[in-house]
Every structure is written in structure tokens, then in C-alpha cells.
Design a protein around this nucleic acid. Structure first.
Lengths: 340, 340
DNA sequence: GACTGGCACTCGCTACAGTCGAGTGCCAGC
DNA sequence: GCTGGCACTCGACTGTAGCGAGTGCCAGTC
């Protein structure tokens, strides 16, 4: 029911203290460390209400209180402001990202930076192929029956795939194929490409048709089936901070989830650059991550996202700081991509 | 000193039991579970000698014995045979690796397979560029002052790097550059390439020289500085098996080391395909891995290695089984590459 | 009516003592 | 050189007791 201002202040104080100390916080310690202007007894009454409403709980009778997932949620939604980054952090971000030589490098630097600043596990999705446009397609003959298809996307991503042709093909035909696919596909978004690829086969002159058919299959399979979404990870060692208290004693489910690219993609791959998503504990749909929280956002050169990034940590996490860092890093990465 | 056959048999029995049960093994249990043909008292005498020689130790007085790193070493060198793989394992390997569509896919499948079969952390190095030959170099114009350099190696590896030209360059010149670099470099081993790249610059006609200079710099930096060695990891969740006993309670140092590609490369990137290297605990030069063992070997299409692969786990590890699996997987991967 | 001080109560944590038993080292005897 | 026997060690476990942080409740005050 109506939580008055002081009760909210008590909840905020509990969250802040618990995040800082990792220990259940009691009424006495609370009034000592925060200017609440009331006595411990009053705080106790407030706590009782907060507990009844499900925002905090006691690990055992006669222990202090600990925020619940619901408590963190309220804290994040209504009680915290995004901390401005310190100048040192801003500098760290710039220094880290300047000098990246290519996309791989940008992604790797970003994920390490994020892990280091937040001291959590960081996840960065490579710019999604589905949201990229084709900049160029290259066909490199490997043998008479094999081509290497190299696709360069406007996001800087480069993907290659071996094409096994049904029959040997002369060099001139490769040139023709290359010209055809580039004419049709350069500049199109990959998600809108399938009908065009279809058309390519139909319009091809008869003697190119078999090769074009194989090529189109590879194109569709590789590029459109979102099969090729990739992620980078860093900072798994940070999971071991905070002893075994976080993650209810076992890192196993977390580590397992982190290795499943599909899972991670689902987790971080959906937000727009301007919004930041916070998933707290139980809100997470992935069972293995019920003891963890995820802060994620999208990034991209403009207002639309080409990929997601975020961090994963214990529910007992510095949300305001983490949110600020994740946002800032995403913005910098977006700028970096825009320069490209 | 002279360890007679029975003492060696006792050591073997201790290693086997300890690996299986994860508990210190006592003299009585030993004679019950193995046909040693002597009494516990005799075994105790043998154990005393083994302990004196540093092959086993007691966690505390009045506990059973546990092998030391030195004990495992002796076990691996003299007391164990490589277990033949079960048919099920062979089938698993084949099924897993058949159907890989490109090198990335091969590497990813391999590392997952290895993690799954050994139930340890698996590490696979991508085929080393230094040991690859150039199959083709492609230059794709991105803008008038930017080229994408794509290198395809005979191992299937494809690397790309952006080349920022000092001045705009017409399309015809790009064609010339492409022809020149391919003429000179295709078929050469990357480690032998530097002088050739040098020559390219010197022999270039004047108006191509600035572009060629930049290009050669990128070539040398990217491809030869072994900067681009890469690895794939899988099975970190396996570190949490065996509770907290392995790795003396903290996964942190291990996880940290695993994230350092340089460290991992040093660890697995040196053996020939025919040899298998086993590093046990303290033998490891990397401090963070003093509590772990590493089994690694090289793989390649022929008798020379193009990369390394291996697994990392607790010193308390099934060495014969792990060694067999690592070897078998390396051999299969080699065959797969040879077909290419 | 809201806040406060006081008080009895709960219960996890730590320390300590006692018991049990696996495992050892040693020794005399075969 | 092997064995059975025996005294000994010491970690693991159990039970008890005391401490103290923290609570809930209540009567009193502003």
C-alpha cells in the first residue's frame, strides 16, 4: 500500500548498505549510517511494513534485512538516479576505445572495458547481420569448384563462407557472378534480402544458374538465418568476487548460461540504444540466471540499434553505477561506429 | 631411490583411487580394492617410503594419502597406458565434427566436443597464421581512401583488416595492387613473408608506391606479428565440478588466466601433432595455474602442427583418459583440415 | 496519531569438551 | 621381508553454553 517517503528512504538505505557491505542490515546500523531523523524503533516499524509488502526479507529471525528482487526493482525504478560517471571513468573509456583497428578489435576492447569498469561479467553482441546492409560481396576462387564468399557489411562486419559448386566454373563466370550479386545486393539490408536473392537465381543466364543457385543457398543460410549472430565475453573471473554468497553458492548455472550464445543473445540483443533494460533475479526468464541480474542496452551508430551489450552480476549490484557505465560505453561505441 | 614394482603399484593404486573418489586413500581401503597380495601394514611401509620420496603426502596426520604433483608425474610417465577410446567416444567425435561448414565452425565444434568428452575446460587455438601459407589476398575498395584487405590462408583462416590509404586511389590501381601482392605472396608461408613484402614496396612503380607502403605496413603488422593468434574456449562450467576442493577453493585465478589469450597460447601452442604434453600443477610456469593440470597437443593436416589444442583441469584428473581423448580429437581435426 | 525508549525474546555464531573412528607408525614374531 | 597387533593421533561430528545483534511489542510522551 502507500509507502510514505520515509519508508522509501529506509528501503533505499537498506539497498545501499547491503550492496556496500554484503551483510544483512539492522535498524540500529541504519540510523547510525544515514540521516533518517528517527529512532531505530521507528525504522523497525517501517521495516516490518516493507517486509510485509515483500520488498525486504530476513534471512533468519534475529538477523538484519536484505532486499528482495522486488525491493531492488522498486529501488531501480523509483529510488535511484543514474550516477554521473567520474572524469576518470570517462577518460578510461576514451583511452580504451581509441586506437581500435577494426571491428573485432572494437568489440574486444569494449567487452574488456565494460568488465573492468563494472567489475562484472560483460557481454557484447557483434553488430547484428540482420540489421546491417551489404557493402560488398567478394567471390574468391579457391579451386575450380570452390569459391570463398566474403561479405562486408556496413557495420564493419566481415563474414566468409565456403561455397562448394556443383560443377567447375571458369574465371569469367566468377567475374559475372560477382558483378551480378553486387549489383543486386549492395546497399540492401540483410533482413530484406531474401526475395532479391531469389530473383538473382531466376534472372541468371542459364549457364550461370547452377552456380548461382548454390551461391544463393549459402547466402540465405549464412546471412539471413541469424545463425551468425556472435558475442564476446569478458570478466568471468568477476563472478568469484563476493565469495560464495552471491549466486547462492554455485557458479555452475551461470557459467553454463554464459557459454550458450543463444541464451546470451536473447538476454542482451533486444533493446534500443536509448533504453536500458534491467532484469533483476527472478524477472529473468532463463532459469540458470535466476540468481543474477542483467543490465543491458543497445548500441548503434544512430538512433537504431545494431547490437546489444550489457553486464551480468549478482542481484546485489550497484545498479545506478552499472547502468551509467553500460549506457556510457554503449554511447561511445555508437560514436565509434558512426565515424566508420 | 629404487622404487620396486610393488611400490609403484601402490602409487598407481593411490592415484587411481584418489582420482575416482576425491578422498585421501588409506592402506586398508587400498588392499581391499586392489589385488596387491600383501597386508595393509606392508602397504603402509611402502607408503612411508613413497611419502619420503615426495610422491604422496598426508593432508593431516591420521588421514589417508594423496598424490603430489610429483606423484602424478611419475604416474603419467611410467605407470599409465593411454586408454583406448570407447566406440561411443569415437562415434561422438565423428558425429560432432562431420558437417562443419567452415573453419570457425570446425574450431567451435572441436572445442565444445573436447570439453564435453573430457569434462574439463577445453582450449583450441585457431590455425596459426605464422604456419599458414597465403592462398589469396583480396583488396576490396570501401571508399577512395579505404581498402579492406582480406587474406585467405591455406588452413582456411580468413583475416581482414582495414587499410587507410594516404591518398585517394583509382580503381585501376587497386587492380594492379591486387595483382602484385598476389603474384608475390600467394603460396608463401607467412613467417617467411617479410622480405617479400619489403621487396614489393621497392619494386612498385612510383605512383603505386605510397599505397603499397601503407598496404605492406598493414600486412606486416597484422599477419606477421603473431598478433592475430586466436583461441576458442569451452567448458568453463566444468571447473565447478568436484566442489571447491580442486583448485584450492578459488576459481578466480583460473578464470583470470583463461581470459588471457596470450597466456593460453603459450600454454597450448607449442607441441607437434605426434607429441602430447602434460603439465602437472607446479610444473606450470603460470602462477595462476599452479593448482591445475594441462594436457595439450598440436594438430595439423600433416605431420607438422598448425595449431594447438588441449584441456585444463584439476591436478586430480583422469590422465590416461584425457590424454587419449585429446590425441584422438587432434587427429580427427587434422584429418578434417587435410580434406580441405 | 506518530514517534520513542525499554524490555523480553529469538536464534545464529562461536567456543569448548567429549566421543568416534579412520588411519598411522612401530615393533615383535614368523 | 612380511605380518598382526597395538598404542597413538587427529579430524569430523555432536552437544552444550554464552554472547550479541536484531527483532517485536508495549507503554509512555509530544
Amino acid at each position: 500500500m502507500g509507502l510514505d517517503d520515509r519508508k522509501l528512504a529506509v528501503l533505499r538505505a537498506i539497498v545501499e548498505d547491503y550492496v556496500a557491505t554484503q551483510e544483512p542490515v539492522g535498524s540500529k546500523a541504519l540510523v547510525e549510517r544515514h540521516q533518517l531523523g528517527v529512532s531505530p524503533a521507528t525504522v523497525r516499524n517501517d521495516m516490518a511494513v516493507l517486509e510485509e509488502e515483500g520488498y525486504i526479507r530476513q534471512p533468519h529471525t534475529s538477523a538484519g534485512r536484505v532486499p528482495t528482487d522486488r525491493g531492488y526493482r522498486l529501488f531501480v525504478d523509483r529510488l535511484s538516479r543514474v550516477k554521473p560517471l567520474s572524469p576518470a571513468e570517462r577518460r578510461a573509456i576514451e583511452r580504451f576505445l581509441v586506437g581500435a583497428v577494426d571491428l573485432d578489435d572494437v568489440v574486444h576492447r569494449t567487452v574488456r572495458l565494460l568488465a573492468q569498469l563494472t567489475r562484472q561479467v560483460a557481454v557484447v553482441q557483434y553488430p547484428s547481420l540482420a540489421r546491417s546492409s551489404v557493402r560488398h560481396l567478394e567471390l574468391v576462387p579457391i579451386s575450380t569448384t570452390r569459391l570463398m564468399l566474403v561479405m562486408i557489411a556496413d557495420t564493419g562486419r566481415v563474414e566468409q563462407r565456403l561455397v562448394e559448386l556443383p560443377a567447375p566454373i571458369p574465371a569469367d563466370d566468377v567475374t559475372d557472378l560477382r558483378r551480378l550479386v553486387n549489383e543486386k545486393l549492395v546497399g540492401t539490408r540483410l533482413s530484406e534480402t531474401p526475395p532479391l536473392v531469389q530473383a538473382l537465381v531466376e534472372e541468371a543466364v542459364p549457364h550461370l544458374r547452377p552456380a548461382m543457385t548454390t551461391l544463393s543457398t549459402v547466402l540465405l543460410e549464412t546471412l539471413i538465418e541469424r545463425h551468425e549472430e556472435r558475442i564476446a565475453l569478458a570478466g568471468t573471473a568477476n563472478l568469484t568476487r563476493g565469495g560464495l554468497l552471491d549466486f547462492q553458492g554455485s557458479l555452475r548455472p551461470i557459467l553454463e548460461a554464459l557459454e550458450e550464445e543463444v541464451v546470451m543473445l536473447k538476454l542482451i540483443g533486444e533493446a534500443e540504444p536509448s533504453t536500458t533494460r534491467v532484469l533483476i533475479g527472478d524477472e529473468n526468464e532463463i532459469d540458470n540466471l535466476r540468481a543474477a541480474s542483467v543490465v543491458s542496452t543497445g548500441y548503434g551508430p544512430g538512433a537504431t540499434s545494431v547490437g546489444g551489450l550489457g553486464v551480468l552480476g549478482p542481484t546485489r549490484m550497484d545498479y545506478p553505477g552499472t547502468i551509467a557505465t553500460v549506457r556510457a560505453v554503449a554511447r561511445y561505441v555508437g560514436e565509434l561506429l558512426a565515424q566508420n
